[in-house]
Simulated assay, not measured.
Amino acid sequence: MRKITIILIVMGLFGFGGCKSKKTQHKKAETSKEEIVKVDSLSYDEQIIVFKTLGYEFADKVTKEMILRDVYEMTWEEETEQHIEKNPFSVLYYFYGWRDPEVPNYNYTDKCLWFDLEFFDPNSQYKWFMERMGAITNGEIKFENIEISTDRNNYEWISFDVNGVKKKWKLEKSGYIADSYVQRFSYLPTELKTKGRYTYFDNGGQQWVIDYATDKEQEEFNKLTGLKREWLGEGNHFSEPKE
C-alpha cells in the first residue's frame, strides 16, 4: 500500500493523467494501475521532487555526486543510487540533516539534524547539538549563552537560555553519554507554547534524524513519503531525565 501511495503522489506531481477522451482516460487508468502494482522503487530525482514539495532543498553546493558519495561511505552499497531507489525516502532523508566542509556553513540544510548518541563524544558536541536544535526551528526556539561545566562529583551540566528562559540540565558523569539529554528537547515546545514540535525518525539503525514540524506538516510529510516519522519523546527511544 505504501509503494502504491508514493507512486500515485509522484504521478500527480509530474502532472500525469491528462487525457483527450473518457475512453482514452479509462485505458490510461488501467495501464497506470498495472504499472503501480509492479513498481517497487522510486528514482532519486522523483524523491527529490517530493522532498521539495515538503520544503526540503539542499544548499547550492550540495550535488547529487556528493550525496551518492556519502551514501556509499555510510552504507558500503556498491549500487548506491539503486540502494536509494529501493528504499524510497528513508535513505535520502538522512542527508538533509548531514554536513560537509565543502558546503558553505557546513550544513546540507537547516531543516533537520542527523545524529547518533556516540557523536556526543567529546562533550562539546552537546553544545553544538543544542545550537542545531535551535537552527532547525526556523527561529521558533532560540538557544543562547550555552555553557558546559563539571561539578565536584564529576557530573557534567549544560546551562543555557531558551527563548529568554534560563535553564540548567544535568548530563552524565564525564566520559559517559547522557541519552536523556535528547529526550529533554521533546518537552520544550509544550513549555514554550510553540507552533511546531520536534520529530524523530530512524530506519532501524542506531542513527536518527531530528526534525521540527507543525501537526499539519507532520501529517503531510508522512503522507507523501510513506515514512513513519514520530514526535520526539514517543517510542521510548531515549531515557527519561532523572532530575
Results as ranks from 00 to 15, higher is better:
I6L: 05
I6Y: 00
I7M: 00
I7Q: 03
L8I: 01
I9G: 02
L13M: 12
F14V: 11
F14M: 13
G15E: 06
F16M: 04
G17N: 07
G18E: 13
C19F: 10
K20D: 10
K20A: 12
K20W: 04
K23M: 08
K23N: 14
T24S: 13
T24V: 15
T24G: 08
T24N: 13
Q25S: 15
Q25T: 10
H26T: 13
K27Y: 10
A29S: 14
E30T: 11
E30L: 15
T31F: 09
E34H: 09
V37N: 04
K38H: 02
K38C: 00
S41H: 04
L42Q: 08
Y44V: 01
Y44D: 03
D45Y: 00
E46I: 03
I48K: 14
I49V: 15
V50L: 03
V50A: 04
K52G: 10
E57R: 13
F58G: 07
A59E: 10
A59M: 07
D60E: 15
D60V: 10
V62W: 10
K64H: 08
E65A: 13
I67N: 06
D70A: 14
M74G: 07
T75Q: 06
E77T: 09
E78S: 11
E81I: 10
E81S: 09
Q82I: 09
H83A: 09
I84L: 04
K86R: 15
K86D: 13
P88S: 05
F89K: 02
S90K: 14
L92K: 00
Y93L: 08
Y94G: 02
Y94I: 00
F95Y: 11
Y96E: 02
G97N: 01
G97C: 03
G97V: 00
W98V: 00
D100T: 03
D100Q: 02
D100W: 00
P101M: 07
P101D: 11
E102Y: 10
V103C: 04
V103S: 02
V103Y: 08
N107Q: 14
N107D: 14
Y108G: 01
K111V: 05
C112G: 06
L113Y: 13
L113D: 06
F115A: 15
D116Q: 12
L117Y: 04
E118K: 12
E118P: 01
E118V: 13
F120A: 05
F120T: 08
P122T: 11
N123Q: 12
S124R: 11
Q125T: 14
Q125A: 08
K127R: 11
F129A: 02
M130Y: 06
